[in-house]
């Protein structure tokens, strides 16, 4: 019974939902964009268009998003994003049309 409740609770939790693509795309452009530029070609932070991210796979890029890069202004996003959301963003960045 306890287990059933837990499963029910998890099923209802947002973390189990599909990442909200529109909201995440907006987050990338608007909030990542405040350092990396609205076009993601760089600002105080570096260029994060797909062509500049060739040395990352989606897992390692998702880790960078979640953990940040200590000693730089790249903050850890794990307080705000789930693993699934970070992975969605990593794939989005890597597959995005280089513009």
């Amino acid at each position: 019974m306890n287990r059933a409740l837990v499963i029910l609770a998890l099923a209802a939790a947002p973390a189990w939902a599909e990442p909200d693509a529109a909201a995440l795309e907006r987050l990338v452009l608007q909030d990542c964009g405040s350092c990396h530029g609205l076009t993601l070609k760089g600002g105080l932070g570096p260029d994060i268009r797909s062509g500049a991210l060739g040395h990352y796979d989606s897992d390692s890029l998702a880790r960078v998003i979640l953990d940040g890069i200590p000693g730089t202004p790249m903050p850890p996003w794990h307080p705000l994003l789930s693993e699934a959301e970070a992975r969605w963003i990593a794939v989005y960045l890597l597959e995005r049309d280089p513009g």
Binding site: D31, S34, C35, L44, G68, P73, P75, P76, W77, P79, L80
Partner: peptide, 14 residues
């Protein structure tokens, strides 16, 4: 030393 001894909180916008 205004933040000395305190954990730096993440800065999502400078």
């Amino acid at each position: 030393g205004y933040a000395k001894g305190r954990e730096g909180l993440p800065v999502y916008k400078m």
